[in-house]
Design a binder for these strands. Structure first.
Lengths: 175, 175
DNA sequence: GACGCATGCCTAGTTCATCTAGTAACGAGG
DNA sequence: CCTCGTTACTAGATGAACTAGGCATGCGTC
């Protein structure tokens, strides 16, 4: 296994106007946003008693459910990037809180399918959960076209991330 | 086994064209990106042995250092949104790994200043660290103006987040 | 100068979500 | 039947955060 990978294009520091330096500036901005967001999340003590991964899991499940697709623990674990042991505990939590049910898979008696036990609107709640007006204002300052651009950019970044290690559940089809 | 991938069926239940729904779509996109990013981070086991907050801390320190500003544990803790107890442990880790030194503050003998003990280039490494070409490609597909827009948007979101709970350290490093 | 209170960092002990390792049941193939 | 890989779970350990409290120093007041 070639475990190197840090050898690629390591041109140090920016300041010029190259594409590379623009890319780094964008990555910096993303990371800065992430830092601020998780700091804010910690400061406000995660209101709903739902952890980060719990919310992400519910979003994934509800969306899959809307598409008529069923999801098992393994797929969910891979999506979240956690191990099979962790997903079991996570599902225990969600099941105890009556947010999901575990049902036997009709095709494979070892496997489960996870059925969300809350209305789809809950996605909105989970998404909005702790949204502050301050953020909404920043977003609404964007023109519709700009908002569209931001959304598309983030979605493409997400897909790129998903494809980095993920050969099992994401067929490529590069957009 | 081969479960279909759901590609962008981004039809939301709130599919009107209102400003509110645009805002929610943007928040969704941000959260989706975050999900993918942290999953990816976990999958690739955080190459450097540095945790998330450790990297953010080093970035903050190195940048402050470049600006000729010195940072103490308290400020850093507030930036990361963690407690003073946690920052002590974090600094212990970084100091043991020879990434920082603790030096007495010349002004206040109770206080410390934290001096990064690695070259500034390390910012680039910390930023690029696990960056894959896939992401760079997405970013480079943006026009310069669009990249500018994305950066500005993310910076404004970060500021909004900082201001939600944060009245103390409103230092801005926005360049 | 000596007191009281505030501040900055650290220590001790706990909690919580993750991990690794190992187990039981099932599916597919010889 | 056996064997091997897969799926979900259990048990115990780890690590990074938290709360509560301790010491030293700084600063205002007498």
């Amino acid at each position: 296994m070639t475990s190197d990978r840090t050898d690629s294009a390591r041109h140090y520091w920016y300041g010029d106007g190259s594409e590379r330096s623009r890319s780094i500036a964008v990555l910096e901005a993303l990371r800065g946003f992430r830092a601020a967001e998780s700091a804010q999340r910690r400061r406000s003590q995660i209101s709903l008693g739902l952890g980060e991964n719990d919310i992400l899991a519910m979003r994934y499940l509800l969306r899959a459910n809307e598409e008529g697709r069923s999801v098992g623990p393994k797929e969910l674990a891979h999506y979240l990037g956690i191990t099979s042991a962790s997903i079991t505990v996570l599902l225990d939590r969600l099941e105890k809180a009556d947010r999901i049910r575990r049902e036997p898979s009709p095709f494979d008696r070892r496997a489960l399918i996870i059925v969300p036990a809350v209305p789809t609107d809950e996605i909105a709640i989970a998404t909005l959960g702790e949204v502050r007006e301050e953020l909404i204002q920043v977003i609404e300052a964007l023109s519709p076209d700009d908002a569209e651009l931001v959304i598309r950019f983030l979605a493409e970044m997400r897909e790129a991330l998903d494809q980095i290690d993920n050969h099992a559940y994401a067929n490529e089809e590069h957009r």
